[in-house]
Design a protein around this nucleic acid. Structure first.
Length: 865
RNA sequence: GGGUGCUUAGCUCAGUGGUAGAGCGUCUCGUUUACACCGAGAAUGUCGGGGGUUCGAAACCCUCAGCGCCCACCA
């Protein structure tokens, strides 16, 4: 450092440039060590319990999770500062299918399937992957400054959770809420296994679309199908109830060719009149939609294929043929019989394939376990309708009701290996028994091979993590939880399930008091992020580049309730700039002796600038408080941003520089210290790292996490100070415009002299400092009248008359327009009669002001040569 | 098909009855002793179209047109 720069005042403890990396790691360690977010910490208020959504088990922190975590941590820190006992319930391990899928894909890359590996070895592999990826996710979340009490986190699969899952299954079974029924599932005839939806890849295949005539003469109907071979298993023909072409046939029977069986013609809303012929064959045992229709109309299931996809039991010549060979043969035979009305080939349509071997998936009838949702859904819906649970923003409530009011029974069995095994055992004589947590299945009985849907266990999160079914102290204290913060995209999958499972298990008490829903993060053009599009924002990369605070502030600042946010790198850069601004403001304050020592000076003893910033601070804190209580993160951030940057940095610090350079500065130093102290506290939830660093360095305090949340002091709100500073701002802005128009460089000093209103003249030295006005004898060559004062200036030469005239004329036009608007209103009898008095007063004031402006501008123009 | 949103400055978005806003971008000037990740100034909108309610509409109602998301479906 040169001697010249070292002679400048320095701020102890703060580097001259802000580098987030220098402080982040150490501060996180500090928070972790102090165990700030454990529920056992001292508290003065009720517990604030939060349920965290689960991050994807991919080992990488996704930007969407970064948003989840940021908003949750933001609330946690604020509640903590308000004296609440804060407890997080981190949902780490819900994504059962996703987890299994990741591991299966890894195996697939090596040409291995889970069936090669066997159940036990496969499950072990998933556990290994979970340990690895879970650890990586935790490390990444720490970068965000999220301090969760991880001791509460329990893997879905561990003993405690398992006990809860088994207990709940048994309880629901015993109360008749779980039943077993037949359903169509995806089946791979090569792997000889059922496939979950995620294991089925849909491809556009070239198939055929054939129209076939059933029946004879008047009593006939033409159906259209892509799978002619399944006609051997038809149980009915369905048409739309309103279709005039077929109305007369509904309820009658028609002859099914080849098998020579009479089948009914039924009416069902599911049939589309405009598609194909408007008549569809119903093959209940080999198509999911047909299955549903068959259930509704009591149509028998006719199984025509075995597990290998070979025709079987039709009693026709086609038995023993592969399904695809049978397709050709059936069409050929029907053609021979003159029953093929038309054929379209190739016909491109989506067909499911086994994700492992690419074999075409065959829908197959099988027995599955179901949850009867009607009673559960009703209590979950009632909890929201009664106001017991609040959905924020309220606008998303219809979406919740739409789902929960129209829910079908929930199939909870999955043909997977990773998850809780269904606790049902089958005896040698087809006995069925649910085996609870403390029971043992009889010898010779076999357990159901399927596992439970991941949402069945994760739906229990809000109570099973507290040790349910035991009546634990935690459960009594923390249930129901205060809030769930998550994206609206998961409302249906997880939130609805948690509502149902919890209200059932916890005697009708819903799992949360508030469900706060945020939107999704999209790219800078509002497009969905996807790897293939290459527009994915990596939170780690941007934290490396701009700091965790910048990312968090950007996310919080974009979080308008329930709406998506577009996120661009530029925005994160802007937030980083804000952090740097705070850093430099604090440096300036510390260089100039700002402090928090002793009580604030008497308000009446302060100058108007100090009173003004205290007034602004009070209003800011008041607004931020009420916005955060409504989960309006974006607007709260916006207000803090503008208070810090505009009010504090651009105006207060600038207007006070003159005072800080003088001897009479003790009061201002204390006021500035107070403002920064309070601002750091209020910003801490959204920018934890930099505020912690600045505040601790500045005040010597231990940590903001344990500091008190700042409250608005309404006695500081000062209308007269605000009015005066508004006038000063107007003067400064006008003179700057004038200087700018006249081509005077910002640093160039100009002789100037104020006359006019005494309250403003009291601050003329501050104005002079800010506007670079010299205090010396001169002969005015220009003068400006603004806000009750007159400023004479010596431009040491002629002023640019053209520029000045154009500026004044522009102002005059604007003022005249404003005046006219006001006049029209005031001349309107209806307006005067009906508008509220307050509005009329405002318009009158506006008229008075514009009239005065016009007068001033007109005379200024007249004297301008 | 059912549901639900959106359309405001070049871009992304706030704004639920009283003179149209922010961030970024753009243009001009400037390194003044916190900060060029900065300061000062400036430009920029028939608030998607059309009706209606109202003294007054970006906001409320109707309608039309685009765009999006969720769910279902594609025989």
């Amino acid at each position: 450092m040169s001697s010249a720069s070292s002679s400048l005042p320095t701020s102890p403890g703060l580097a001259s440039t802000f580098n987030p990396a220098d402080i982040e790691s150490a501060l996180y360690q500090k928070w972790l060590k102090a165990d700030y977010f454990t529920a056992d910490a001292a508290s003065t208020k009720e517990a604030f319990t939060m349920v965290l959504p689960p991050p994807n088990v991919t080992g990488v922190l996704h930007i969407g999770h970064a948003l989840d975590q940021t908003l949750q941590d933001c609330l946690a820190r604020m509640k903590r500062m308000k004296g609440f006992e804060v407890l997080w319930l981190p949902g780490m391990d819900h994504a059962g299918i996703a987890t299994q899928n990741v591991v299966e894909k890894q195996l697939g890359a090596q040409g291995i399937s889970r069936h090669d590996l066997g159940r036990e070895a496969f499950v072990k592999k998933v556990w290994d992957w979970k340990a690895e990826s879970g650890g990586a996710i935790l490390d990444q979340m720490k970068r965000l400054g999220v301090s969760v009490d991880w001791s509460r986190e329990r893997f879905t699969m561990d003993e405690g959770m398992s006990k809860a899952v088994l207990s709940l299954f048994k309880k629901m079974y015993d109360e008749g809420l779980i039943y077993r029924a037949e359903r169509i599932i995806n089946w791979c005839p090569r792997c000889l296994t059922a496939l979950s939806d995620i294991e089925v890849d849909h491809q556009d295949d070239a198939g055929e679309f054939v129209q076939i005539k059933y029946g004879e003469g008047e009593q006939s109907i033409v159906i259209a199908t892509t799978r002619p071979e399944t006609m051997l298993g038809d149980g009915a023909v369905a048409v739309h109830p309103g279709d005039p072409r077929y109305k007369h046939l509904i309820g009658t029977k028609v002859l099914l060719p080849l098998v020579n069986r009479m089948i009914p013609i039924i009416a069902d809303e599911l049939v589309e009149q405009d598609f194909g012929t408007g008549a569809v064959k119903v093959t209940a045992a080999h198509d999911p939609n047909d299955f549903e229709m068959a259930m509704r109309h009591n149509i028998p299931f006719v199984v025509i294929m075995n597990e290998h996809g070979v025709m079987d039991g039709t009693g026709t010549e086609f038995d023993g043929m592969d399904r695809f060979a049978a397709r050709v043969a059936v069409v050929a035979k029907l053609k021979e019989m003159g029953r093929v009305v038309s054929e379209k080939r190739p016909y491109i349509h989506a067909v499911g394939h086994c994700s492992r071997c690419d074999t075409t998936v065959e829908p197959r009838l099988s027995k599955q376990w179901f949850v009867k949702v009607a009673p559960l859904a009703k209590s979950s819906a009632d909890a929201v309708r009664s106001g017991e649970v609040k959905i924020e923003p309220e606008a998303l409530e219809p979406r919740y009701f739409e789902w929960i009011d129209n829910m079908h029974d929930w199939c909870i069995s999955r043909q997977l290996w990773w998850g809780h095994r269904i606790p049902v055992w089958y005896g040698p004589n087809e006995e069925v028994k649910v085996i609870g947590p403390d029971e043992i299945a009889p010898d010779g009985w076999v357990q159901d091979p399927d596992v439970l849907d991941t949402w069945f266990s994760s739906g229990q999160w809000a109570f099973s993590t507290f040790g349910w079914p035991e009546k634990t102290a935690d459960l009594a204290k923390f249930y129901p939880t205060s809030i769930l913060v998550t994206g609206y995209d998961i409302l249906f999958f997880w939130v609805v399930r948690m509502m149902m499972m919890s209200t059932f298990a916890m005697a009708g008490v819903a799992p949360f008091k508030t469900i706060m829903l945020h939107g999704l993060v999209r790219d800078q053009f509002g497009k969905k992020m996807s790897k293939s599009r290459g527009n994915v924002i990596d939170p780690i990369e941007f934290m490396d580049k701009y700091g965790a605070d910048a990312l968090r502030f950007t996310l919080a600042r974009g979080a308008n309730p329930g709406t998506d946010q577009a996120l661009a790198e530029d925005w994160i850069g802007g937030s980083r700039n804000f952090a740097t601004k705070l850093w430099n403001a604090m440096r300036f304050a510390m260089m100039n002796g700002a402090n928090v020592t002793g009580p604030l000076p008497e308000i009446s003893s302060l100058n108007a600038i100090d009173r003004w910033i205290l007034s602004r601070l009070s209003k800011t804190l008041r607004d931020v408080e009420s916005l955060l209580e409504k989960y309006e993160f974006a607007r709260a951030c916006e207000i803090l941003y503008h208070f810090a940057w505009d009010d504090l940095c651009d105006w207060y610090l600038e207007l006070s520089k003159e005072a800080f350079a003088s001897n009479d500065k003790a009061a201002s130093q204390r006021v500035l210290g107070h403002v920064l102290d309070q601002l750091m506290r209020a910003l801490h939830p959204v920018m934890p790292f930099i505020t912690e660093e600045l505040w601790c360095t500045f005040t010597g305090g231990e940590s903001l996490v344990n500091a008190q949340w700042p409250t608005s002091n309404t006695t500081h709100i000062d209308k007269s100070a605000e009015k005066l500073i508004t006038a000063l701002q107007e003067i400064v802005t006008e003179v700057r415009r004038f200087r700018n128009d006249q081509g005077i460089k910002p640093s160039q000093k100009v002789p100037g002299r104020f006359t006019g209103a005494a309250d403003i003249l009291a601050y003329s030295s501050a104005l002079r400092f800010l506007l670079k006005l010299e205090d010396k004898e001169f002969t005015p060559t220009a003068s400006l009248e603004i806000a009750g004062i007159k400023l004479d200036l010596d431009l040491t030469g002629s002023i640019d008359v053209v520029a000045e005239r154009s500026r004044l004329e522009k102002d005059l036009v604007a003022a005249k327009k404003d005046m006219q608007t006001a006049e029209v209103k005031l001349d309107n009898a209806s307006f005067m009669a009906k508008a509220p008095a307050q509005v009329v007063v405002e318009i009158k004031e506006r008229l008075a002001k514009t009239t005065a402006d016009i007068e001033r501008l007109t005379s200024a123009l007249a004297t301008l040569k």
